[in-house]
Amino acid sequence: MSAPTRGRARRTLSAVVPPLVLVVVGLVVWQWAVTSTGVRPQVLPSPLRVVEQGWRNRELIWTHTVPTLQVTAIGFACSLALSWALAIAVDFSRWLRRALTPLLVASQTIPIIVIAPLLIIWFGFGLLPKVLVIALVTFFPIAIGLIEGFAATDRKATDLLRSMGASRWQRFRYVRLPGALPSFFTALRIGITYAVTGAVFAEYAGAKEGLGIFMSLQKNSFRTDLVLAAVVVTALLSIGLFGVTHLVERLVIPWHVKRRRG
């Protein structure tokens, strides 16, 4: 192994080991508490039971995982398109900035818990209400990250481009856009962690399939162990997608990743 590879391996290790230790300690305490108090599994199953039952029902869980992933992907893609469109519009028009910023903030005061069931009443059990919920909970951090990233462009850089005769569009393309990408990826990571939870939540409010409705059904039949197994799957999905954003970031803006390390 070459020196830099070894360095990276050590860095990865030091990032993974501490949280892993905490998780293991937590699980051991939990297991011990359940066995020593003899609490009923309908109330609190032991972690071993969660794993065992989860594994036994893996095919069922998997058939509910796929639709959740699909909804998450579609909803998040819509959210990305929406936030890019909004952020670019706001960057090009001062009037739109003034008009839209308060509305963006106001959109975040909508209580999702109340609105999600209404969306299902209005739009049924199909894709649309879930996509809307995901978009509603994820577009805001991304749009704000982009808008602020564009606006953080150095005035001097703008002047330099103007001295070259650059149009507003060229200034956007050559400076504002690439300069905003680091801030976009930070926002993207925040958004993606909300996306899976948003999907599960929307399904919980009403759906034909998906991890959310699975949890709801299992809860109603007191299968706490299977609810928790689905929670574990949800967490793994979120962590996986979070990791994907890091990979994409490394591909799209290697210059920034390197600089941050350097």
Binding site: L160, L161, M164, Y174, P178, W255
Partner: peptide, 30 residues
């Protein structure tokens, strides 16, 4: 601005471009 080439106080080289692509920026814009 077209008769002038302007070099600001800071170098303002952009990290997302290679050195060569930084130096061609004015030409690309033109």
């Amino acid at each position: 601005s077209d008769p002038f080439a302007y070099m600001p106080q800071q170098d303002l080289l952009f990290p997302w471009r290679t050195v060569l692509d930084n130096t061609t920026l004015g030409l690309e814009v033109a």
